[in-house]
């Protein structure tokens, strides 16, 4: 072996590599670094033995610990179901009114409901349930299909024009303009009539002209005074809320095209207790239509813990 060049300054051998007169010293690796490196090699070998490691043609080495992420996930899911089981059983056995009136059960239902709502309903109704154009606001006191607990539960189960045999929305609003059921002039007059229904200033002559048309075409669903019909999902035209917009253009557009809302049935997707939780969540956050005003909670009945001095 040939004698290697030694650096004058440090006394350390060089590697013989040179760049622009700079030579690389062949400094040994720090001892601690080497030991860490050896340690990682040992850990790797131990890991191969214990854990799934090497791919083969038909499978992979399983490792002596029998670790499987897939099994771990399914056992975790089973454990989660067992944890949720107790709460789910209580939701199943209690009525909607009982769930809502029991503070603890209500809190549980709200938690479940919020999570389910966020994953499934928020896409259309908004994260907070505030709705949007064409998608009803679930936080206010205006309901197309009824805002009571049972109404909300039914809407969730069967959906609206969802294809479910019991789905809501048998009757549909016609596209009066597109299908040429009414003339353009008639639709313009009808628009004024609807504006007048909501107690806003409107063209009196147009309102008078539209009155017979309204009686023929609209009252069957929206009622003679325009207050709507929850059985048919016909909106109240006299209130301050407009599903497709409050201005004349939007109203005219709706009469012309007759859009009809659609909501899927959730019966097949959610368990009955999830539907219950969701119904309670929506009901509570809408202010609770039809909820019987209960007496102030009794002090003793809601005391979960023993008291002391």
């Amino acid at each position: 072996m040939t004698e290697r060049e030694r650096d004058d300054h440090s006394g350390i051998e060089t590697t013989g590599h040179e760049w622009d007169g700079i030579k690389e010293l062949d400094s040994p690796l720090p001892r601690w670094w080497l030991w860490v490196w050896y340690g990682t090699i040992i850990i790797a070998i131990v890991y191969w033995v214990l854990m799934p490691a090497w791919p083969g043609i038909t499978g992979f080495t399983r490792g002596v610990l029998g670790q499987s992420d897939r099994q771990e996930l399914s056992s975790d899911l089973r454990a989660l179901e067992a944890i949720r089981g107790a709460g789910a059983a209580r939701l199943r056995s209690a009525s909607l009114e009982q769930i809502e009136s029991d503070p603890e059960l209500q809190a549980y239902a709200l938690q479940v409901g919020q999570s389910v709502f966020g994953d499934n309903c928020a896409t259309c109704h908004g994260a907070g349930g505030g709705g949007g154009k064409g998608y009803p606001n679930l936080r206010d006191d205006i309901w197309l299909w009824g805002g009571g607990l049972a109404d909300i539960q039914k809407t969730l189960l069967v959906g609206v024009r969802s294809g479910h045999p019991g789905a809501r929305g048998e009757t549909m609003m016609s596209a009066f303009g597109r299908d040429q059921l009414l003339t353009e002039a008639q639709i313009s007059d009808l628009t004024e009539y609807v504006v007048a229904l909501s107690r806003r200033p409107a063209d009196r002559a147009a309102v008078a002209r539209a009155a017979p048309t309204f009686q023929v075409q609209c009252v069957s669903c929206h009622g003679p005074t325009g207050t709507g019909d929850r059985v048919k999902g016909a909106p109240d035209l006299t209130d301050a809320e407009w599903l497709y917009g409050p201005d004349r253009d939007s109203i005219r557009n709706q009469i012309w095209n007759g859009r009809n809302g659609v909501m899927p049935s959730w019966e097949a997707r959610f368990s009955p207790e999830m539907i219950k939780a969701l119904a309670v969540y929506v009901h509570v956050n809408s202010g609770g239509e039809g909820a019987a005003p209960a007496a102030p909670p009794a002090l003793a009945a809601t005391t979960p813990k023993p008291t002391g001095p």
Binding site: P103, Q106, V284, G288, A291, A294, P297, L299, T303
Partner: peptide, 22 residues
Amino acid sequence: SRPGAAPGQTLVITAPPNEVSA
């Protein structure tokens, strides 16, 4: 107002001991 209670100027609730209630 709150679900299960009559609306008014005052609501009455019971806060359980030694915890935060929402």
